[in-house]
Design a binder for these strands. Structure first.
Length: 878
RNA sequence: GGGAGCUUAGCUCAGUUGGUUCAGAGCAUCUGCCUUACAAGCAGAGGGUCACUAGUUCGAAUCUAGUAGUUCCCACCA
């Protein structure tokens, strides 16, 4: 049967994914095995696959597949997040395109559209993940707004409320004037922007021409000013104590106050105070009992209270108020200025600090235990530098604004009563019971209860994810959650360490009194090769699906893993996938080679094959040990590199070249069987990284039963013998000799097909045969000979202080050989000098450990011997 | 403003407790090969004052301090 010379991933990938699904190989149920649980960081339900997902999910799949093969009952739970702001924004846009204004719809009508949209476009990303080979247990797919998940969220809200950890109050919050909702502190991103600093003077009340000048970046809020503040020790303003100023344009009288908050060196040292629109001003407002004048509508336009520019957007108002101030004689000057402005993470709209009535979750008490488990390494972070970040946030955590003025999300289970009180309960019926008991005099009926209009922050459901996917909130002692919880590892990006990771830990401890996962692997950010973040605007993000079509899913997986040590950013370049594809092809062709051999069972096994098998088996064990170590430390790219080198260098370039029978000759049966076993193991080791090609070849390698799969084959574990290291060293030395001979060939232009001779200047020992046959095979040497005297006129090299001679028919270029020898001599002499310097240092000999000194003495002896040999050879040449 | 990290070959990165020829790997580069598994390949080669300075030490890529550059996180400076 002809096998193509190039690996074609396309058909193979779909075929095997289908096979895995049909045979339920991703499915998991609680059993007697040890569990290995991974819950996917749920992507936005309306999202599409990007490179960050590719990296993140490749890593998860590698870990899950490896665990499965190592005898764990591995489960990888997939799902999506309802992403309230992002999704609502998308639906609003979709409606707008259809000519429908959200405000013209009722809540129910809007939600109907939203659900339709979700059913139609939602979960595309999960389908895309299948292309990657993700071994998720798809039957367990969850959505954060599934009825059971919603029930869990409600239950948790009520529980926290009853524990006094949720409260409602008027606070200064981050208001998104585009999405028309409050957002949490974590959802505000600060960017540096070029803006202007406006100097505006306020007339001192009771004077004709005495002014105080302030500096502000937001002149449009002047009409909301209720004070001017200066530093109490500022000499410039001491005389103004107890006076009042007149707000320009609106001619309102406001007090001058003095507080140390003000920085004397900034601007003029005088600060206008607008308590309704700045958090600091708000705090000062409370301290000095100032009025609060809200001049903005929710959408960021000026309202009636502003008196001027009513209905104009805040940024437009900023422009338009300047000529007004100028005309009134209040504008002093304008300077360029760089400052930081907060933007909404989701809508990219400039955040407006706004006083509003919101729901908050008290964080301090939840944070304390969550901090401890990480500090005590009950949960380990990889890399551990994120412990610092985590600790800092936890120690300074502020209350969490959990209400959002949106419709798409989990509605807050608070029910308002006609008497302006409210009750919190899991259902309206429950709420009525409580209300009736509390306020019997009201004679309440169910229609008197009005549920709160707000929904909860998306993360208020995500933080339950490791529990709620196993129904661990509603039924805390069901067998599933008891078995699968906690997860073995969470793989996620560091930018959601506060949004999600920290809060999951809090939630796990609060409702299960146990950590939600044991390890957290923080992936890096995928950047382009210039180091820029991948973004739609830059158009520098490749389409993962196209990439997989071009290089194969296995190739792309390898590309993602190659240079992504935990926590380090990954500078992605297509060439990495190319390298992955090439590796696939290498394995593919190794398989072609082996499958092409004719086998003769009667043929005895040559020594070279016996040596090769013995060596490779040891080498394999060595690499397995190394890989286990890498995996323990989540150094996936190192683990992959170890496999890569084992397969390419050791297996293909060395092992196969040794056992390869001469052209059109058969291979002996014993060796062939051993090769098949070795190849089988290599495929299994490689499978977690590259699932498709390994499954394909694994099936072609031997006759397999219909339902067999490499996915559930046993992962080889290292089994090292006592003398392995010695044997490996001997083989490594042999490889060095081979390299030297090849170098001679390359330098002298002797083609591999022309045999050369090799003479070794030392006494032969019995063990030499084991290795010499390898040299003979790989260097095309008829027979390695041992001699007792130097061989003049031959090319010499020294390895391990043994002289080797390769006779060369043509005249040797004496000068060139001399130069080579002299160069080497100079190098060794230099080296000897450094060793002698050390050894002649009394303090070194006295202080350094004996072993270290002994090593130096050995170096000295070796170097001296080598110098002796080189000098002899140089003399001989002359 | 505070904190954390990083700086090793052209690029991306390893380098565990200071000590074995410790200065490494992959990619890229150069040279020679279309050698019957693979040119998506084979064989070989070159390439680094370990950011800089000072210190500790018999000995520093590794420890300490400072400097420079860089990245990230946090923070209410108008």
């Amino acid at each position: 049967m002809e096998i193509a010379t190039k690996y074609e991933p396309k058909n193979i990938e779909d075929k095997w994914y289908q096979f895995w699904i049909e045979h339920q190989l991703f499915a998991s149920r609680p059993n007697q095995q040890k569990p290995f649980t991974v819950v996917i960081p749920p992507p936005n339900v309306t999202g599409v696959l990007h490179m960050g997902h590719m990296l993140n999910n490749t890593i998860q799949d590698v870990l899950v597949r490896r665990a499965r093969m190592r005898g764990y009952n591995a489960v990888w739970v997939p799902g999506t997040d309802h992403a309230s702001i992002a999704t609502e924004a998308k639906v609003v846009n979709m409606l707008k395109e259809k000519g429908i204004d959200k405000r013209s719809l009722s809540r129910e009508e809007f939600l109907k559209y939203a659900w339709e949209w979700k059913e139609k476009y939602g979960g595309i990303i999960l389908k895309q993940l299948r292309k990657l080979g993700a071994s998720c247990d798809w039957d367990r797919t969850r959505f954060t707004m599934d009825p059971e998940m919603s029930e869990a969220v409600t239950k948790v809200f009520v529980d926290l409320y009853n524990k006094g950890k949720i409260y409602r109050g008027v606070r200064m919050v981050n208001w998104d004037p585009k999405a028309l909702t409050a957002v949490s502190d974590e959802e505000v991103i600060y960017h540096e922007v070029q803006s202007k600093l406006y100097y505006v003077r306020y007339l001192i009340e009771g004077t004709k021409d005495e002014y105080v000048t302030i500096a502000t970046t937001r002149p449009e809020t002047i009409v909301g000013d209720t004070a001017i503040c200066m530093h109490p020790e500022d000499e410039r303003y001491k005389h103004l104590r107890g006076k009042r100023a007149i707000v320009p344009l609106v001619n309102r009288s406001i007090p001058l106050i003095f507080d140390e908050y003000v920085d004397r060196d900034f601007g003029t040292g005088a600060l206008k105070i607008t308590p309704a629109h700045d958090i600091n001003d708000y705090n000062l407002g409370i301290k000095y009992k100032l009025d609060t004048i809200n001049i903005f509508n929710d959408n960021g336009t000026l309202n009636e209270a502003a008196q001027f520019l009513v209905g104009v957007d805040r940024f437009e108002a900023r422009k338009q108020i300047i000529p007004l101030l100028e005309a009134a004689g209040n504008l002093v000057k304008i300077e360029d200025y760089t400052n930081k402005v907060g933007y909404s993470e989701r809508t990219n709209e400039v955040i407006e600090p706004k006083l509003s009535l919101q729901w908050f979750c008290d964080m301090a008490s939840l944070a304390k235990p969550a901090l401890d488990v990480v500090m005590k390494d009950e949960i380990k972070f990889y890399p551990d530098k994120f412990k610092n970040t985590y600790a800092h946030w936890m120690e300074n955590v502020k209350d969490w604004c959990i209400s959002r003025q949106l419709w798409w999300g989990h509605r807050i289970p608070a029910y308002h009563l006609p008497n302006r009180e409210f009750v919190v309960a899991v259902s309206k019926e429950e709420a009525l019971k409580i209300a009736v008991e509390k306020y019997p005099e009201l004679n309440l009926t169910i229609d008197d209860l009005k549920q709160d209009e707000d929904v909860m922050d998306t993360w208020f459901s995500s933080w339950l994810w490791p529990m709620s996917v196993f129904d661990g909130i509603r039924n805390p002692h069901n067998p599933e959650v008891d078995y699968y919880y906690p997860a073995a590892v969470l793989v996620t990006a560091p930018d959601i360490i506060f949004f999600w990771v920290a809060r999951m830990i809090m939630a796990g401890l609060e409702w299960r009194q146990a950590v939600p996962f044991k390890d957290v692997y923080f992936t890096g950010t995928v950047r382009d090769k210039l180091g820029r973040k991948m973004s739609k605007q830059l158009g520098n993000s490749p389409d993962p699906i196209m990439l997989m079509e071009k290089f194969g899913a296995d190739g792309v997986r390898m590309g993602m893993l190659l240079s992504s040590p935990a926590g380090n950013d990954l500078l992605f370049d297509e060439s990495l996938c190319e390298q992955g594809r090439n590796f696939n092809n290498k394995i593919w062709n190794a398989f072609r080679l082996i499958k092409g051999w004719e086998v003769d069972e009667k043929l005895p096994q040559p020594q070279s094959n016996a040596t090769a098998v013995k060596w490779f088996t040891m080498r394999l064990n060595e690499v397995l040990t190394e890989m286990n170590d890498h995996f323990e430390k989540y150094r996936l790219s190192d683990a992959l590199m170890a496999v890569y080198k084992l397969v390419w260098d050791d297996f293909c370039s060395c092992f196969l070249e040794v056992v390869k029978p001469p052209y059109q000759k058969p291979i002996d049966g014993k060796t062939y069987g051993e090769i098949i076993d070795i190849f089988d193991k290599l495929l299994r080791i490689t499978h977690p990284f590259m699932p498709f090609i390994t499954e394909e070849l694994w099936h072609s390698l031997k006759d397999r039963k219909d339902d067999e799969s490499i996915m559930v084959a046993v992962m080889p574990e290292p089994q090292c013998g006592a003398d392995d290291q010695q044997y490996l060293n001997r083989f490594a030395n042999t490889q060095k000799v081979i390299e030297r001979v090849r170098r001679v060939r390359a330098e002298k232009n002797i083609a591999q097909k022309n045999p050369v001779n090799l003479y070794v200047l030392r006494k032969k020992v019995a063990e030499d045969d084991e290795m010499d046959c390898i040299i003979e095979k790989l260097c095309n040497i008829p027979k390695v000979e041992y001699i007792t005297e130097k061989m003049p006129g031959a090319i010499l090299f020294i390895e391990q202080n043994v002289e080797y001679f390769v006779p060369f028919a043509e005249n040797i270029d004496k000068d060139a050989e001399l130069k080579k020898l002299n160069d080497e001599l100079a190098y060794v002499e230099n080296f000897l000098q450094s060793v002698l310097k050390k050894l002649s240092n009394e303090r070194f000999v006295q202080n350094a450990p004996e072993q270290v000194v002994a090593v130096e003495r050995k170096k000295q002896a070796d170097a001296e011997a080598k110098i002796q040999l080189l000098k002899e050879q140089i003399a001989g040449l002359k």
